[in-house]
Design a protein around this nucleic acid. Sequence first.
DNA 1: CCCTGATTCGC
DNA 2: GCGAATCAGG
Length: 178
Amino acid sequence: MMDAGGTWTDERVELLKKLWTDGLSASQIAAELGNVTRNAVIGKVHRLGLSGRAKDAKPAGSAAARPRKATRAPSAPAPIAPQPHNNNVVLAPIPTEPVAEEPVVFADDDIAIPMSERVTIMDLRESMCRWPMGDPTKPEFRFCGARSITGLPYCNHHARIAYQPVADRKRERKLVRA
DNA sequence: CCCTGATTCGC
DNA sequence: GCGAATCAGG
């Protein structure tokens, strides 16, 4: 039991249908389901005959002029999913300040993050910062959502906080940062 | 470059 | 049936 999510169980199919008809994009649904790619979701959607979503106006007549490969018919009107834009997470040029041994204080973490840019699990995607903000048990829970560093789950700002390299306690550091 | 869905085809 | 690769577009 306990499939790792790689199979289309009834539950997963139901959720897929729901989310798809709700207008979520394939990638969002894939992220929600987990362990599946957006391609898998799209493939399933088509097999289920759910494509077209809100409206389906396929000119079956002009579908004849199709060589072989994909040649999408009309164009689907974007589901209009609000996509957060990473404005400007202004940061100081690396605080290599010799903060002595005082435990680094990140009291101003949040101020550097535009409130308006925060996202819910639904809008969070691979390229967005997954820094949690707030109480995960509350519906107001959000993620940072700023553009994450390629290859990392966090944005520039949070990556520095998350991956602190064994804070150097050495008072003398010639600061040889390239 | 980021993303979207659509289609094909080997598995 | 499944989904990666590919295609076509915004």
